[in-house]
Simulated assay, not measured.
Amino acid sequence: MGGLELKVTLGPVDVTATQALHVARHVADRIGAEHPHALDEDMPRLAGRLTGRDPDAADELRELLAALGLPTNARQLRAIKARAALEQAAANRKSKERT
């Protein structure tokens, strides 16, 4: 993927569901950058979906997400999205209580 390769073991890290979603999106964007598509400029969402159907890109994405302990299938993604929504609702309640 380029950039700096870290040779450090960080061990388990606790992250919120919202953070995990952000990381999963970033990873997907990076894999998409590794597999450019002709529609990237004009229709990026469609290009992303089509790139996701590329077996090589999909395998790379699943492998990296699994290594990071992030969702690798639709069921896991739905579960983490639901947890992120609960976290956001709790944060909104706390924000309203402070005002």
Rank of each mutant, 00 (worst) to 15 (best):
A47E: 01
H35R: 02
K96G: 02
V15E: 05
D29A: 14
T99V: 15
P12C: 03
T18M: 10
Q76P: 06
A66T: 05
A67I: 04
A58T: 05
L6C: 12
S95E: 08
P44S: 01
K96P: 04
L64I: 08
M43E: 14
E60F: 05
R93N: 08
A66R: 12
P55D: 00
L65V: 00
R98A: 12
V8R: 11
L50G: 07
A57T: 02
H37S: 02
L61E: 00
A90L: 11
I80V: 13
D42S: 15
L10E: 08
D59A: 15
R25H: 09
T51Y: 04
G69D: 00
M43H: 15
V23W: 09
A47F: 05
A57H: 01
T16E: 02
Q76E: 08
H22T: 12
R98F: 09
T16N: 02
L64G: 12
R78F: 09
Q88G: 13
P44M: 05
A66L: 11
L68Y: 02
R75P: 10
A90I: 10
A85F: 04
A66F: 06
R75E: 12
R75W: 02
N73I: 04
R53W: 03
G2S: 11
P55T: 03
A82N: 06
A57S: 06
D14V: 11
E97W: 06
T9Q: 15
P55W: 00
I80S: 06
A57L: 02
H37F: 04
E87L: 06
P36T: 02
E34D: 09
E63F: 15
L86S: 11
D40N: 08
L4H: 15
P71K: 00
Q88N: 09
G32Y: 05
R93Y: 06
R62E: 09
T9F: 15
Q76N: 06
A89I: 04
R49Q: 13
E97F: 04
E87H: 03
M43Q: 14
G3N: 03
L86Y: 10
D59S: 10
H22K: 13
A47D: 02
A89Y: 07
T9P: 15
V13K: 11
G52K: 05
L46I: 07
G48W: 09
T51V: 14
I31F: 00
M43V: 15
A66E: 12
M1T: 06
P44T: 00
